[in-house]
């Protein structure tokens, strides 16, 4: 069975690694029309049919109120070489905090319970099941894998920013200038980006491929972030969603976000 480079990236989760060796490796393997056996995920990789995340906002808010916790953002931004420009105009962020009324504008009302009013909520890419960013991208640089993860191919992106206009959650950032001087202690195992391309949360596709959970999930000390496969009826995400009432951001838009907030 023939496998092209894109499928190869999709299957192996190398999509995000194209910046370092991944692209070269994929090009080597698939230069011309080399026939390959069906590619399989790495041994020990976490595989799922529909990845999703549940945020237990009670635990999260409590922790933030207690010590101003930013563990998840720091972990994510560190492993993904997210630059820190120190100004809002150039800002790039993958996972960050805002308040309940900004994360869920339609759910907020003047008598919102005290625990939610002004409470910190996490924002990140929703890995929408019906993602408008993928629909609008004119190059396929933004694409969705079969397991639902919405990924970026930094080498294909032309920087038109149609996806930023298309994302109704403000999940995407653009490299307005060369980010590399602003990455502290850049890690070798994840690509840094060049100027002029878009980036966002990748649900740690590169870590899943190694059998590890997303960095934010691992970093959270109060286990407020639960990650798992919604298609698996015995998964923890399914269980907690079954037991608690949960919200999604702007559900009326039909994007089917896969980040669930237990309130």
């Amino acid at each position: 069975m023939g496998v092209n480079r894109r499928d190869f990236l999709k299957i192996t989760g190398l999509g995000t690694l194209v910046g370092v060796g991944g692209k070269a490796a994929a090009d080597l393997v698939f230069k011309g029309q080399v026939e390959a056996q069906e590619a399989r995920p790495n041994e020990g990789a976490l595989v799922g049919k529909r990845w999703a995340m549940v945020v237990d906002t009670k635990k999260c808010i409590e922790k933030i109120h207690k010590d101003g916790c930013k563990d998840c953002s720091i972990a994510c931004h560190t492993v993904h070489n997210v630059p820190d420009f120190g100004n809002p105009k150039d800002e790039i962020k993958w996972i960050w905090q805002d308040t309940f009324e900004h994360i869920c504008p339609n759910q907020h009302h003047p008598f919102t319970s005290e625990s939610l009013e002004g409470a910190p909520f996490l924002a990140l890419c929703n890995h929408c099941d019906n993602p408008p960013c993928v629909r609008v991208c004119p190059t396929g640089a933004t694409f969705q894998r079969d397991d639902g993860i919405v990924l970026m191919d930094f080498h294909r992106c032309i920087g038109c920013r149609f996806c930023m206009a298309g994302c109704p959650y403000g999940s995407r950032s653009f490299n307005w200038r060369d980010p590399r001087p602003f990455v502290q202690n850049a890690r070798e195992d994840f690509p840094t980006r060049m100027r002029g391309v878009v980036e966002k949360c990748n649900f740690c596709a590169e870590r899943l491929a190694e059998g590890k959970p997303p960095a934010c999930v691992e970093a959270c000390k109060v286990k407020a972030l639960i990650f798992g496969d919604l298609e698996d009826p015995h998964s923890e995400v399914r269980e907690v969603l079954h037991e608690h009432y949960s919200l999604r951001r702007k559900p009326e838009l039909g994007t089917m976000p896969q980040i669930y907030y237990i309130v």
Binding site: I158, G159, F162
Partner: peptide, 29 residues
């Protein structure tokens, strides 16, 4: 104007190399 707005102008041909009929920008092009 489209060209000067691009973050990676040298890759503009990606629109043709990877045609994506689901994108309105492809059709606009």
């Amino acid at each position: 104007f489209i060209f000067v707005d691009m973050g990676q102008p040298l890759r503009v041909l990606n629109v043709l190399l990877h045609p994506t009929p689901n994108s309105v920008m492809f059709w606009d092009f």
